[in-house]
């Protein structure tokens, strides 16, 4: 485990469905400063992956930190990571602790 985020986990989500299928809340300047997964939709890529869970906090997307990013900026970053043809997966660094 790293020193800064000892409980974080890297989850690789393959783009196995046409949607990512997660809902997030939170972002800088809200009560939830880092995005938290609030829903995982059945049949979406995240659900198919089987490793993301409701309640997890997303720390990084493809190695890019979400710290200090407002909700819309974080959501845009995740959406773009899913949309790009450059990769067939999205890497999420998540933690179970808030």
């Amino acid at each position: 485990p790293g020193l800064l985020e000892p409980t974080s986990t890297l989850v690789r989500v393959a783009k196995s469905a046409s949607t990512l299928g997660i809902a997030i809340e939170g972002g800088a300047n809200t009560r939830q400063p880092l995005p938290r997964i609030v829903t995982i939709q059945r049949g979406g890529s995240a659900h198919n992956c089987g490793q993301l869970k409701v309640g997890q906090i997303i720390l990084e997307v493809n190695g890019v930190s979400l710290r200090g990013r407002e909700h819309r900026d974080a959501a845009r970053l995740i959406a773009e990571a899913f949309k790009t043809k450059e990769r067939d997966h999205v890497d999420f660094l998540v933690t179970d602790f808030n």
Binding site: A23, I24, E25, N29, R31, Q32, V38, H71, A75, F82
Partner: peptide, 15 residues
């Protein structure tokens, strides 16, 4: 007493 945080709740986005 401890002051409550006054930060607003976040919107939710489906991705």
């Amino acid at each position: 007493r401890e002051k409550r945080l006054t930060l607003p709740p976040s919107e939710i986005t489906l991705l």
